[in-house]
Structure formats: C-alpha cells, structure tokens
Design a protein around this nucleic acid. Structure first.
Lengths: 206, 206
DNA sequence: GTCTATAATCCGATAGAC
DNA sequence: GTCTATCGGATTATAGAC
C-alpha cells in the first residue's frame, strides 16, 4: 500500500481494533472482524503486528501513553495555576480520560479497554500497567496529599481507588445512567466529569 | 450421575464456570475448559443449561439472588431502624457485597465475575441482570431520595453509578491498595466497606 | 506490502447409544 | 444423566505468488 496514504494500513488496523476490542473485548474480537472493518487483508495483521496478542498490546499502549502525558501536563498546570485547590487536580485526572473517551476515532471506546485491562487478573498486563503508568498515580497522590495534609496516606490511596473505579465505570457507560435522548455524547461526558469531580472532591474531604 | 453426590454435576459446572469466567472472562472461557475442570463430559453443559449464554446467566443467579435479598432486607432494617440516615442505607448496599466477597466458597471469584460482566458489555447478560435485579437499585434510589430530598433524580442516579463502580472496583481488589501483611482478609474488606461508606456518603451529600 | 489459499486448531452444539 | 462421536463453522497463523 502507498505509504503516503492519510491512514496507513497499520493505523487503520489499530483504529478498527480499538473500537472492536472496546465493544466486544479482546477475546471476543476476531482478527477477521478487525481486518474487515479496517478494509485490509486478513494477513496484514500478522505482517504488521506478528500476532493478536501483540496487536492488543499496541492498541493499549498507544492510548495509554497519550492519556498519561495529558494527565501529567494538566496536573502540573493545575498545581501551578491553582495552588492548594483540590478540584483542579481531580479535573486533571478525570478530564483526559473524558477527552479520550469522546475522541472521534476509536477513543470513544478506549476507556472500556482500560476497564477490561484492570479486570484481567492475568497479571502480566497488570504488571505492565503498574510498571509503566504507576508513577502517574503517585504524582496525583502527592499533589492531593499537599492539598489535604491531614489525611493519612492509607486513606488517600483508598480514595484514589474509589475515584479510579467510579471513573472507569462511569466513563465506560457501564452504569444505569441512560443518556437522555437529545443530549449529545460530548455533553453527556462533560456532565459525567463535572458530577464525578464534585462527588469525589466531597469524598476526599470527608 | 448419582443425585445424592455432595456436588452434583450441575453444581460442579457452575463452580468451575465461575472460577474460569473470573479468570479469563466469558468469551475467553470455552465450555471445554469448564467441563474439563468440573470433570464432567462436554455434553453435560448443554444437557443441564442448554447453551453457554444460559450458563452465564445461571452463574449469576446463584449468587445474585442471595445478595439481592440480603441487600433488600438490610435496606428495610436500615430505613426502619435509622430513619432519615444515609449511612445505614449505603451500608445495606455495600456490606452484602462485602460478605459475598469474603465468602470462601467461591464468592470471592464471583465478585470478579461481576466486574467482568461490566467490562465485557455482554448485552444479553445486561438485560438479564436489569430484568431480574433492577428493582433492587430502584429501591435504594427511593430510600436515598427520601434522605436527601433536595437532590435531583438525575444527580442521584449519577452518584449511584459512582458508588457501584467504586464498590465493584474495590471489592475485586483491582486497585493499587495492597493489603498490609498481617491484616486478615476479613479486616481488609471491612476497612474497604467503612472507607467506601464514608467516601460516598460525603459524595451524596455534596 | 499485499494478496490467495490453506494448514491446524478450537469452538458450540447435537445426535444417538447406553 | 452420561457418554462417544461428530457436524459445521470460526479461529489464528503461515506459506508462497505477485
């Protein structure tokens, strides 16, 4: 295929895989579905990625790197621009997930991919996550601790877990909230972020 | 097979399926793995359950019936014994899940199966759960609304979603909280419940 | 890099003997 | 209720032409 195409075969496979993985899970998605949606030949995925497992890893890494970088950048801006305030820190954690979730090309589905990764008690993926993205959580923990110096470290980590759980599930549309007809997806996600920041800020301060 | 066996073929299939679903997800688990672990013939699962989809539903029913009944009973007791108080209602929601999670007879695996259910976005299962257990959530919503009459219905449902997400996440030990060595599993779970009730109570009141 | 064709395996489900 | 045997189909992955 011409390498100057707007979306290369490789990128189209990644995009299609991301959408389908989010919709049907890793194991629930076949490479044939992926290549069919990407409109590439079935053999292309093995040529470009070697195996299905490696494709899964690449899909995951691509979005996770982006989101982590965004979270850290917004955290830095929050701490610099609103010193001592909790809500901007929580927003820096929540909003990049939101932004990714409403991104047009497959990002819409990514949060659910993350949720699945956490559910993989499989450990190799969990270890990968902890090794590569654990420092992001630690940065947030440090920033929140500065806002709320009376909270014990143990309590802080419990509450970060609660936030992560609520965020993951809400963003993935897992819950019973039905988006009212007429409300756009973007407005729905922004509402979710606003509500979650308020809910968890109160929780952290309790 | 002898019907007086301590664990019938049917129960062994349910138990094996539960463990494997928790570990590998629904689509990631084959009926052959299930029947192999249960040490029954591959044909038995279709004889007893009809289909894989129905087996998934029955794995849920076995635990959810009991947990839902317990939640409703504790909710009734909470409303009667502590009228107008929010925390007992939240405890009635959280603690039966906790009890299930620390039940040594497979309950712990089931908690992770719940997380899988959300993560895999299995529509037929979601419908099954909504049809059979949706009324439990509605009862809790009504009880909380009476405690906090100023909160809009929309806001209430958002916050219930946050609670459910945080609960599922925490109960399945997905988070970064490591149980300190020396702390028993029971104490760890009770701590989780206490922290979550406090966190979410503040969130609901915000 | 992209294709066709196919190997090798695994899947869920069922028929039919016992 | 439990078994063997098998059907029809889908899966990942690869070999080899272009």
């Amino acid at each position: 295929m011409a390498s100057h195409a707007p979306f290369s075969t490789k990128d189209r496979i990644l995009g299609a895989a991301e959408e389908l993985f989010a919709q049907h899970g890793f194991t629930g998605t076949s490479l044939r579905q992926v290549t069919s949606r990407a409109e590439v030949n079935i053999a292309a995925v093995n040529y470009h990625f070697g195996s299905k497992e490696n494709l899964v890893n690449e899909v995951f890494r691509r979005r996770m790197d982006e989101m982590s970088a965004q979270r850290l950048a917004e955290l830095e801006a929050a701490v610099a621009g609103h010193p001592g305030q909790l809500e901007p820190i929580l927003a820096a954690f929540v909003e990049p997930a939101l932004a990714l979730a409403q991104d047009r090309c497959g990002g819409a589905a990514f949060v659910r991919v993350i949720a699945r990764a956490y559910a993989e008690k499989n450990d190799s993926l969990r270890k990968f996550l902890s090794d590569h993205y654990g420092h992001v959580l630690r940065e947030f923990a440090k920033a929140i601790a500065k806002c709320l110096p009376d909270m014990s470290k143990e309590e802080l980590y419990w509450r970060l877990d609660f936030l992560a759980g609520a965020l993951t599930y809400a963003m993935a549309d897992f819950g019973l909230i039905k988006r009212p007809t007429g409300t756009g997806e973007k407005a729905h996600r922004e509402r979710a972020a606003r509500e979650l920041i308020r809910f968890s800020a109160a929780g952290f301060r309790s």
